[in-house]
Design a protein around this nucleic acid. Structure first.
Lengths: 216, 216
DNA sequence: GCGAGCCGATCGATCGATCGGTAGGCAGGG
DNA sequence: CCCTGCCTACCGATCGATCGATCGGCTCGC
């Protein structure tokens, strides 16, 4: 009996994201032309990058003229900044909202939320992570603070588990990079062709995280 | 006693890479103007992206005029294609060269090589992974084949370990995405400010991978 | 004097951004 | 009811700058 491995491993393509499903967190107002611009920019920036998308590309996708864009946003960079803000605030809120009775449960819920954010909003995650460099330092600063805080949150949980001798991990910092890194990459491959729900991926990755820190 | 966590977690910055150390595999000829162009393009494409780097940016970094570039490469895209080719061939060669007596040792060495490739050549890895979308499908095709083969190689090792009942993992595909994903992200944060050697990171990540598949 | 390597000048196209002006809905006075 | 005035939303035309790429010609070493 042989295993059909070509079916087990879906072919990933050249794109930076596995989906074209434009989706923004429910807290974001999407009505009117401003919302339309935000949604089309999300798709274009994710697929072609900030510098690979022109003002006219964006306007054409919104079915408006390029001049109209400036009635809603002062510049192309401000559109990106708004998407980056939304992405980082949504992600950070999920991390902070994750609760747990002990270190194990806290790590599980935090990783679950981390992965869910990347699987449910892949376009937003890709833009937030891959186009951050295109922002001026001033416009990127708020996102950088949220990133640092999120890393620290994960670091604290792991340090807590170590000091309680519930976790057994060779290096706390490398555990943070590994756990956050594997979750971030989900945004690059998760899409319609992948036979998993975001919840399934989040649950399994949370289990992986507990294995990494030696708690499972 | 409190832990100085600000020292434990180095501040990462807005950049796409943690280093500016231009390095290419030894197999690549770096002599002459063609090599110089390749090296400067590696840095610029990694830091600013393909579309964020102009022909004149690249020429200026090489201390030549933009017209001279076309004496060495037919187009800007061909420069990127060459970097992508070098990156994927070097990475794939390392994976294929990884040996091991059993499933555990094979997974350990493959993950070690995977991580080493991303830690020793972060700029090359970032360009290969993040700028692949900027290539036309024809020019990206060879790299896509190498990527698919590398994924399959990892998948085969994990399936082998599962069928031998050496590994205990809830889902083989998600283990592949998690292990390869955490290794790929290393290229984005590893740099001079990080107090680990590539070998230390590779060794620890290989241990993490074995924990993920339930073999450690 | 010949080929290799480089460059100044320039091509048409496109870039991000700005301007004055127009169309349409709505409020208030007659 | 109509008329007037205004405000919001949008657009055509165009700005100077920069884009990727091309060409003929220059300057060397051999």
């Amino acid at each position: 009996m042989t295993i059909d491995r070509s079916a087990a491993l879906p072919d990933l393509d050249q794109r930076r994201v596995g989906t074209s499903d434009v989706r923004l967190p429910p807290s974001v107002l999407l009505e009117g032309t401003s919302g339309r611009i935000l949604r089309e920019a999300l798709l274009l920036f994710a697929e072609q990058g900030f510098h690979g998308t022109s003002i006219r590309d964006l306007a054409h996708a919104c079915q408006i003229r390029s001049a109209t864009l400036y009635a809603h946003y002062p510049s192309k960079e401000h559109v990106l900044a708004e998407l980056v803000r939304i992405g980082h605030e949504a992600h950070h809120a999920r991390l902070v909202g994750a609760q747990g009775r002990d270190s194990v449960e806290r790590l599980r819920t935090v990783v679950r939320e981390h992965v869910l954010a990347h699987a449910e909003y892949p376009l937003l995650a890709v833009v937030s992570n891959n186009e951050l460099h295109a922002l001026s330092p001033e416009m990127a600063a708020p996102a950088m603070l949220l990133r640092a805080d999120g890393r620290q949150l994960l670091m604290d949980i792991i340090n807590e588990g170590i000091s309680e001798e519930v976790f057994d991990v060779p290096d706390a910092f490398l555990a943070v990079t590994a756990i956050s890194g594997m979750g971030m990459r989900v945004a690059n491959w998760y899409g319609s062709g992948v036979p998993y729900s975001p919840e399934q991926i989040a649950e399994t990755y949370a289990d992986f995280a507990l294995r990494i820190v030696g708690a499972a």
